[in-house]
Every structure is written in C-alpha cells, then in structure tokens.
C-alpha cells in the first residue's frame, strides 16, 4: 500500500473502522514507513488529548439524539487512566507535544498482531523450519546484530516450529515460532527499549499478547491461544532465558 492510500485510510484505521484486509494492508505499510507511522502517532496523540476533555457540550441538534441513544458509551478510555498516563508539555513553538507510553504500546501491539496474522495468511511462518533449537538459533547468525534466545519448550507441550526474520516499526526482529495444538505462537525478539511498559498484556482483536523486556532485549509474544496457556508459555520462556 502506498503512503497516499495509507494516509487516506489512517483515520478509519485509528477508529478501527476498516475491513480486516484494509487494516492488515495499512498495518503492513506502517511497519516499514516511519513517515506514516508518525502520522499515526499524531492521530493517536490527538485522540488522547480530545478524550481527556472532562466535558464538552454537543451541538444542540445532536443532544436529543445522544440522549435517545440506547447503547451506553463505549470505547472511550476512562479519564482516570488517561490522566494517569498522559504528560503534556508546551514546546518552543507553542505546540502541544504529548509524551505518552500509551500510543507506543497500542501501535506496537497492533503491529505485533499484524505481523503474526500476515505470516499466517501468507503461510510464511518460518524461514528455517526445525524443532531443534540448535538449528534455529544459529540460523539467525549474520542476519541480526544480536543473538535471540531460542528456548526448547517441547517437553512442556510447546514444540518449536522454526524462525524467520521479520520487522516491527521498520526494525529487524527475530520471530521465533512455536505451536500449541493447532495454535501458532510467535515470539518477536528485538534489541532496545521500545518505550512500552514492561510486564504488559494486551488483547488485540482476539489475539492475546504479552510483552516483557529481559536485559537489553524486548520480547513480544502473540497468539490466538487462550490467555491462560499463553501466560504459561510466557512463564516457561522467561524461566528458560527469554
């Protein structure tokens, strides 16, 4: 997808109003284009700013429609949560700059899900297919500037499928792929701090995700597996060095 098309759809993407195919295409573009990613951040920052308004009068002609609306308010993030997470400051140009770890978390979580789904849809789960950690770990050598841990969890019911090099926010990452029954689990491993709260869990369109940051690494795991078993998987990974 081009930048032009991405920016045309960016509002509907932020609002979760695109079809799954369109959202995947936009998400794919955002993993490789920092210009469009920054536009997305601008939109997400704006959303946080507007939603932080404690009150606002709707235009008169809409008040009756809002009052008559049967469904309760939804999707609006709790003000207390926003207030606790948002730091605003005035820049030298008088503009508002929003430092929030929220937008990074949601963007990265969305991209993690998109890359996982894309690999499933394109059936490009792994570049090196092996259940042997000693075959998968060396395969990353020369492809990444770090050595991702590749624990063997077969004895715990999470056999290794293999690995591939993928990208998140334009940065190369190791995707280490496991399975649990028919569920595929991807562990994305990269270097550095992605400014996302550690020890965090997410639910993105039915996919469960967990994020933690061991030493100087960043780990994201994602799957459609139930939250309990994914948590068990996370604990095993962490106990074995990831």
């Amino acid at each position: 997808m081009s930048c032009h098309d991405t920016l045309r759809l960016i509002d509907a993407y932020v609002d979760d109003e695109l079809s799954a195919e369109e959202a995947a295409a936009v998400g794919e573009h955002l993993t490789v284009c920092r210009h469009c990613l920054r536009q997305l951040w601008g939109r997400e920052d704006l959303r946080v700013l507007v939603r932080a308004l404690p009150y606002f009068s709707a235009p008169p002609r809409l008040r009756a429609a809002i009052i008559d609306r049967r469904q309760p308010r939804r999707r609006v993030a709790p003000l207390a949560a926003i207030a606790a997470a948002v730091v605003l400051a005035v820049g030298a140009d008088g503009g508002i700059r929003l430092w929030s770890r929220l937008h990074n978390a949601s963007v990265v979580a969305e991209q993690v899900m998109t890359r996982h789904v894309n690999a499933l849809v394109t059936q490009h789960l792994v570049d090196v297919r092996s259940t042997d950690q000693h075959a998968v770990k060396p395969w990353f050598q020369g492809k990444l500037d770090f050595a991702p841990p590749v624990p063997n969890l077969a004895d715990a019911g999470f056999p290794l499928l293999g690995g591939r090099v993928d990208a998140l926010a334009g940065q190369p990452v190791a995707a280490v792929v496991y399975e649990r029954r028919l569920h595929v689990i991807t562990a994305f491993v990269s270097v550095g701090d992605d400014d996302v709260p550690t020890e965090s869990t997410y639910n993105v369109r039915g996919f469960h995700e967990q994020h933690w940051a061991p030493r100087d690494l960043s780990v994201w795991i994602v799957s459609d597996l139930n939250a309990e078993e994914l948590n068990e998987f996370a604990q095993l990974l962490r106990a074995r060095g990831m």
């Binding site: 932080a52 308004l53 993030a77 207030a83 730091v87 508002i96 929220l102 969305e110 965090s200 639910n203």
Partner: peptide
Amino acid sequence: MAERRADDQLGPEELVIQREQIERVRRAVE
C-alpha cells in the same frame, strides 16, 4: 485497539500543565 495499561503517575506540576492543556484542547474543539 489494544487494552492499555500504564503505570505512570502525574506529579503536581504535571497536573497543572495538564489542566492548562485540557483547556487549550477544549478551545480548539470549540
């Protein structure tokens, strides 16, 4: 979108700044 969790807490100065900026956003929407 993702369910979000943040551990940050605002200090008194940040709260003042936040109040000012909320007012600024309100005026912009108006």
